[in-house]
C-alpha cells in the first residue's frame, strides 16, 4: 500500500533521522511511501493557543492534501492526535467537518500503524541497550497508544525495557506552554528526567520527538546523564 507519511515541522527541521528511519522501515516492509505536498505543520500550535481560525487556515490545506490518501502515518503522537481527534472538533459545524471526519480513521501514529494496522511487531531490529519508555500524553490518552510501542520494543534483539515510575507523567513540553510557563515546564521536565535516570537506562525512548526535545534539552543544560532516541530510530537499526 502507499503510505502518506506526515513529518511534522519540528521533526523535519531538527530530527530528520526520525522521518528517514520511518521511510526505510516502511520500504523494507514492501510499502511505498509518499510525502504529501501539503503543509509542514498540522496547525496544532495555533489551535492550542486558542486561535482556531488561524489553525483552520493550515488544517484545511492539510485536509485537501490528504483527501486521496489511503492511510496517513504521522511521526508524532501529538500531531497524530491533532489530526485524528482534534480536527473533527476544530471543524465542527463548518463545511470541512465531513472531510475531517473522513480523514480521522485513516490517520495513525507510527507505532500504532505498525502494530494495529500492519500487524507487524518484529522488524528484525537489534539494539543491545537498556532503555526506558516515555509515553507522550497525546499518544497515550487521545490515541490510546500504550501497548504498541512496547510490543515493538519487546521484539528488538538485545533490548531491555525498564519502566520508570513516572512513565505516564507529562514531560512538561506542551507546545507553547513550555515557553509561556517555563518555570512549570522545567519543573515537570525535572520530575520526568529524574524518574527516567532512576531506572539506570541508557536511553529514553518515545514516539514523540517533541517530548524528547524537552527531556534532552533539560538533561543537557543540567549535565544529566540522559540520552533520548525516537522509537523509529531503534527499529531501523539492524
Amino acid at each position: 500500500m502507499t503510505i502518506s507519511l506526515f513529518i511534522p515541522c519540528f521533526v523535519d527541521l531538527m530530527y530528520p533521522k526520525v522521518g528517514i528511519s520511518m521511510v526505510n522501515i516502511f520500504e523494507k516492509l514492501g510499502h511505498k511511501v509518499a510525502v504529501p505536498k501539503g503543509p509542514a505543520c498540522c496547525g496544532q500550535p495555533a489551535f492550542n493557543s486558542g486561535y482556531w481560525d488561524e489553525s483552520r487556515t493550515i488544517a484545511t490545506q492539510m485536509l485537501e492534501s490528504l483527501k486521496d490518501a489511503d492511510v496517513v502515518v504521522i511521526a508524532s503522537g501529538s500531531c497524530g492526535a491533532m489530526m485524528k481527534v482534534f480536527y473533527p472538533e476544530l471543524f465542527a459545524g463548518t463545511k470541512y467537518e465531513a472531510m475531517a471526519r473522513e480523514l480521522a480513521p485513516k490517520c495513525f501514529e507510527f507505532s500504532s500503524f505498525l502494530v494495529n494496522k500492519l500487524g507487524v511487531t518484529d522488524l528484525g531490529a537489534k539494539f543491545p541497550h537498556k532503555v526506558t519508555f516515555h509515553d507522550g500524553c497525546h499518544g497515550l490518552r487521545e490515541l490510546n497508544n500504550k501497548r504498541p510501542p512496547r510490543e515493538l520494543l519487546a521484539k528488538v534483539r538485545g533490548l531491555e525495557l525498564v519502566e520508570m515510575t513516572a512513565a505516564e507523567t507529562c514531560c512538561g513540553f506542551g507546545g507553547t506552554f513550555s515557553a509561556k510557563f517555563p518555570a512549570i515546564s522545567t519543573a515537570m521536565a525535572e520530575v520526568k528526567c529524574a524518574s527516567a535516570i532512576d531506572t539506570k537506562a541508557e536511553y529514553i525512548v518515545s514516539c514523540d520527538s517533541s517530548c524528547l526535545m524537552q527531556i534532552q534539552g533539560l538533561a543537557d543544560k543540567q549535565r544529566q546523564p540522559a540520552k533520548t532516541i525516537h522509537l523509529a530510530e531503534i527499529l531501523a537499526q539492524s
Binding site: 530528520p16 526520525v18 522521518g19 526535545m213 534532552q216 534539552g217
Partner: peptide, 23 residues
C-alpha cells in the same frame, strides 16, 4: 528571544539536511 526556553533547556539545532530536503 528564545530565553523562555533556553534559560533552562538546550535547544536542538536545525539539522544540516532536513527531512524534506533529504526526500
Amino acid at each position: 528571544p528564545a530565553q523562555a526556553w533556553t534559560k533552562t533547556r538546550e535547544v536542538a539545532p536545525i539539522a544540516k539536511q532536513s527531512f524534506r530536503e533529504w526526500m
